[in-house]
C-alpha cells in the first residue's frame, strides 16, 4: 500500500474523546463523526484532513475503545496516521476499518509532503527516508482487504 499527503501535526497522547466526543456517538450516521472530528482538540483541524497524513506524538488513540474515532479519521479522508506509538485498541480498530497506521517518530512540519510505501517498509518526509516496522501478517491481510469486515466477507 502506497500513499502521500500533506502533514497535519497533532501532539502526544491524543485520546479518542478528543478525536470524537462522547456526545456525538449515539448515531449510525458517520457524517456526524466526520463533521465533529477533533472538535475538542482544535476545531480548525477538520477542514485540513481530506487527503492528509496525520503526524502525531506518542500514544495516539489512547482511552476509550470507541471505533468511531478510527472511522471518523478514515471517512474524513485521512490517508494514514503516523505516530511513534499507538494505543493498542485504537491500533486494532484502525486496521480493522482500513485506516493505515505507521509507527514512526517523525518530526512534523505542518503541510510538508509525507509519502510512504507499506509493502517496501518506508516513509519519507522533508527528504528523509525512515524504515518502518512491518505489520503482522494477519494485520497486513486485514488492511489489504480494506478492513476486517471485508477480510471476513472474502473468507466466506
Amino acid at each position: 500500500m502506497k500513499g502521500k499527503g500533506p502533514a497535519v501535526c497533532v501532539g502526544p497522547d491524543i485520546d479518542t474523546d478528543l478525536v470524537i466526543a462522547g456526545r456525538y456517538l449515539r448515531t449510525k450516521d458517520h457524517s456526524i463523526w466526520v463533521e465533529h472530528v477533533f472538535e475538542d482538540l482544535d476545531p480548525s483541524l477538520a477542514p485540513l484532513l481530506e487527503g492528509s497524513v496525520i503526524v502525531a506524538g506518542k500514544n495516539f488513540g489512547c482511552g476509550s475503545s470507541r471505533e468511531q474515532a478510527a472511522i471518523a479519521i478514515r471517512e474524513a479522508g485521512v490517508v494514514a496516521v503516523v505516530a511513534p506509538s499507538f494505543a493498542r485498541i485504537f491500533f486494532r480498530n484502525a486496521i480493522n476499518v482500513g485506516l493505515p497506521l505507521i509507527e514512526c517518530d517523525l518530526a512534523c512540519m505542518e503541510g510538508c509532503l509525507v509519502t510512504f510505501d507499506l509493502a517496501e517498509g518506508w516513509i519519507e518526509a522533508e527528504g528523509k527516508k525512515h524504515a518502518i516496522p512491518p505489520l503482522s501478517p494477519r494485520m497486513q491481510a486485514i488492511l489489504s482487504a480494506g478492513g476486517l469486515v471485508e477480510y471476513w466477507r472474502n473468507q466466506r
Partner: peptide, 29 residues
C-alpha cells in the same frame, strides 16, 4: 469486552481486555 475498561476482569486472574466493535463482530461470528 467492547470497552476499554474490560481490563477490569483481569482481577480474577483472567486475561481480560478491550477490543473495538469490528473485532467484536468477528468474535460474534
Amino acid at each position: 469486552g467492547a470497552d476499554s475498561h474490560s481490563c477490569t476482569s483481569g482481577v480474577f486472574g483472567a486475561f481480560s481486555t478491550g477490543v473495538g466493535a469490528t473485532d467484536m463482530a468477528a468474535i460474534w461470528l
